[in-house]
Design a binder for these strands. Sequence first.
DNA 1: CAAATAGTGTCTATAAGACAGTATCGA
DNA 2: TCGATACTGTCTTATAGACACTATTTG
Lengths: 244, 244
Amino acid sequence: MTQDDFLASYDPSAFPQLAVTVDLILLGLRNQAPTVLVLQRNAQPFEGFWALPGGFVGERETLEAAALRVMQDKAGIETAHLEQLYTFGTPDRDPRMRIVSVAYLALLNEAAFTAALRQNKALLPARIEAPLSHEDAVAISVRNEDDEVLQLAFDHAEILATAIHRLRGKLDYSPVGFALLPEQFTLRQLQDVHEAISGRALNKPAFRRRMQDKGWISPTGTREEGTSFRPAELFLFNDRPQGD
Amino acid sequence: MTQDDFLASYDPSAFPQLAVTVDLILLGLRNQAPTVLVLQRNAQPFEGFWALPGGFVGERETLEAAALRVMQDKAGIETAHLEQLYTFGTPDRDPRMRIVSVAYLALLNEAAFTAALRQNKALLPARIEAPLSHEDAVAISVRNEDDEVLQLAFDHAEILATAIHRLRGKLDYSPVGFALLPEQFTLRQLQDVHEAISGRALNKPAFRRRMQDKGWISPTGTREEGTSFRPAELFLFNDRPQGD
DNA sequence: CAAATAGTGTCTATAAGACAGTATCGA
DNA sequence: TCGATACTGTCTTATAGACACTATTTG
């Protein structure tokens, strides 16, 4: 904000001690289920609990640059769809000190997801169970590959719920699903992504028509390989549909 | 985020000096035009420019509580639709020091809007000119009642553009338009709100059907008064449609 | 009754869902 | 030829826009 009564010659120590961090939701699909990469805490508070990767915002760093840096450091990922999600700042969300955290949502395709797992062995894929028909609730839970519930540290369950809610909301009117796919993909894969995020089955002809009509995809003329049945045509995402 | 390598016994002065503020977009409709309340700066930097009201986040205060407090202090408004919009944190957005600002969007009906103007004479209503077909651009401008362009301080034009973009996006699927109306309203007024925000004319029968079908409104059985023609029926907003 | 706006009936256009059909690949 | 999945034609259903018509109030 910065306003009229801002101290013209201010005293730095006059401002309360406070830190700004970014937290990352590294989201991908594993076996058609939305999955997030988490780290186990090895110190108090919340020792043994699972947390989203994050880090402090550098002194001369934009928020987005901090998110990109954390993504690089903790998962070795250079590029991915990255968008600011929401800012969490309840005074006691971290018992040690006041921390305001800007959450960023990163969407990883399968290549980036597996690369992250390979680069940082501490990362654990946590399947997200997000019931339908709930706004931004606590009703969310995450499980490991053995289907055991993972306890999330801090307010990270709330952050995750916000992420899923946002993603579901954007899916219909924004071409966000493509971020979870490789450069070339089949329409079946694209529909699988939409079904995994929205949590419900979709009508195939209607889905294809919609994707075509929105101008989001272009046929490549080539087909997938290695199937034991009729291979599907590969499509490309149209980065610039028309105008905008 | 608070993570593994967080200092268990940390040194407060180890964290860079940085402040978190909230900025408020106090948005209402004046003559069917989206209008925001701004304050003229009387000190450097951006002296003479117009700025969104804002304030520092208190040491033991949630972000939302800070926004509510600023709304109360600067505009005398106790209650309004208030939602977090986006967080702006470019290092040099304020030349004096690093300030991360969490922007909140407040929607004021006519009563709250005029009450704010009465309570704080420094507030100026600035009409927002937001061209269609632009994502979240610099193409936005604000004008005073004499149609003169007002220069906005800091990155406040960007904040405003983000607000309009968000509002337009939410209008169709969220009952956000009601926040700009009094408790009882006519369907014509509701349609005017939607047209003012979205910036385009809407079909009357279709609009009425949609509002009815979504279950957002209830007829009161009473009618408006003081018209020189057939008075329209008054409706109420259904706070709890069904379930959810 | 005239003026003005509220409110509706209905036709048309467009998009979504259902469902079954045809097409094309590997084996 | 069979199995499996890609792809499409078409009918039905739901929703949105156009437009005119009726309804109701004040003066």
